[in-house]
Amino acid sequence: MSNFNEADQGTYVVLAPEGKFNLVAAPPIKARIDDLVAAGKARIVVDLQAVDFIDSSGLGALIGGLKTARQQGGDVRIAAAGEQVRAVLKLTNLDRILSPYDTVEEALHDW
């Protein structure tokens, strides 16, 4: 099994990766998002609380997942991002399309 937890909350699904979100960890998350969207579950929150490092491959998985989900009328949102994750999102301006929410609850605000 991949090193992330999954919780299906009915109207949305929470994915929670751990540790380094990089070239090794990113493809399984991306594949899971694709499968969830294909199964009609296109509202996904990625809980980044336990992620201490993200690189461009991790960002790529989130952006790729977001594109897939939005095509099906859903979205990928991120919650509880740590300092490094926020710094990288800000650096690349990707926070413009993938805005970080403080908590999973806040990420759900209009769902």
Partner: peptide, 10 residues
């Protein structure tokens, strides 16, 4: 600047 990387859906 505030631009996104190339390859974004915007």
């Amino acid at each position: 600047q505030d631009y996104l990387p190339l390859g974004m859906p915007i």
